[in-house]
Amino acid sequence: MHQSHTFPRDRSREYLRDLLIATGVLAPDARELRGLLAWLEDFLAQQPSSYRHTLQTYSRWNILRRARAQADKGQLTDNTVGNIRNHLRMLGEFLTWLNEHETALDRARQAHIDDFISTHPDATRHLPQFLRWTHSTGRSRLLTSPTYRSQQTSPQRAGSEHWRTVERLLHDESIRADTRICALFVLLYGQRVANISRMTRDAVTVTAENVTVRFAAEPIVLPPGVDTLLRAHLQALSNNHEQRNGPWLFPGRNPARPIDHGGLEVRLKRVGVAPLAARTTAMMQLAAELPAAVLAGFLGIHPQTAVVWNTIAASSWNSYPALRRSQNSRTDV
């Protein structure tokens, strides 16, 4: 009998494979990891033999090891896989550029790095990690690359516009409920769309008194209006015979898969929510109100990142009820 990963990959077969996994016919595996492994095999086959082994070794020990660990935890997303592909493509361009300049990696000098970056500025996202590895493994001399820093400030929305959008999404029943909830998670809690798309139902707890949601370790009590929307959404999932037993809070067209985060971003933009600007505005306001430790515990960001947000937040936020209520209800925070 053929193993599931030996079948050709296309949309219909992937859909069938997901359903077979969901019903227990096939053992669970990570669709994103399968796709990454197939892509990597093709990518390496297209690279010149002079540096194919270097990319293969780097991918095995620095990329795939982390990707497998993320897949085991259910944290390997399509967005992550896309970033990995872009990373390896840029490294392929860099090594091709060295070849074209008749320079082997072990003979590359700092001037080569500087010249390459001058024509490939995005390489500063990708080269530092690779060059540290090549030096530590004896494949190159000590070479450095500036670390990528965005040259643009993160966009924000005016506070009044931000809150008008919140009010509209709370009450506009012409918009799908799941779209409204996802948008509110961005607007109120600064959550990334990729993280929202992969939320599972066990992150939500419903009682007669309130509804809580966990984006990280600490549960957040949802404010009135948002809790009503989420109660109704969960009831709709329970009433749908295809979705009632699935793990995802926001299932995709295939109930065995979460909603595609790219498609979700498009839906949010259609209802007037630009995810990056909305998230930045929410994080700035939250950081002005909450200590770094509380911010990290509620929103699932690194404590040092929370400190940075606290530092750059320029104004206080006096009108946000949900986190304040959760915080005040805990005596140990």
Rank of each mutant, 00 (worst) to 15 (best):
W61Y: 13
A104M: 11
P321I: 01
V81N: 01
R279A: 02
F185C: 00
T119K: 12
E41Y: 02
T280Y: 09
N310F: 03
E41N: 15
R270W: 04
F7G: 14
L142T: 13
S118N: 13
D115Y: 06
S136L: 04
L237M: 08
A45T: 10
Y58R: 02
D227T: 09
V213N: 05
I259F: 05
L131N: 01
E100M: 13
R324N: 15
T228C: 07
G24L: 06
A111C: 13
I117M: 05
E218K: 11
N210I: 03
A287R: 01
H261C: 13
G272P: 03
R132L: 06
E32S: 12
A194N: 06
E32H: 10
N328I: 12
P48S: 07
P275R: 07
Q56T: 14
A236S: 15
G24K: 03
L234C: 08
G92L: 01
E167W: 02
L290H: 07
G138P: 01
L299G: 07
L16N: 01
V266Y: 08
D10G: 07
R11A: 10
R330Y: 03
H302S: 10
R201S: 04
V308H: 14
I113F: 00
A123H: 01
V204W: 00
G190I: 13
S329G: 03
N210Q: 15
N240Q: 13
R52P: 05
S50C: 09
W248L: 02
T281E: 06
L143Y: 08
G262F: 05
W61G: 05
D72C: 10
T153N: 15
L55A: 07
H126Y: 15
S150Q: 08
L37E: 13
A296C: 07
A158L: 13
Q152F: 11
T6K: 09
P251M: 09
R17N: 10
L37G: 03
Y148S: 08
G246W: 06
G74P: 04
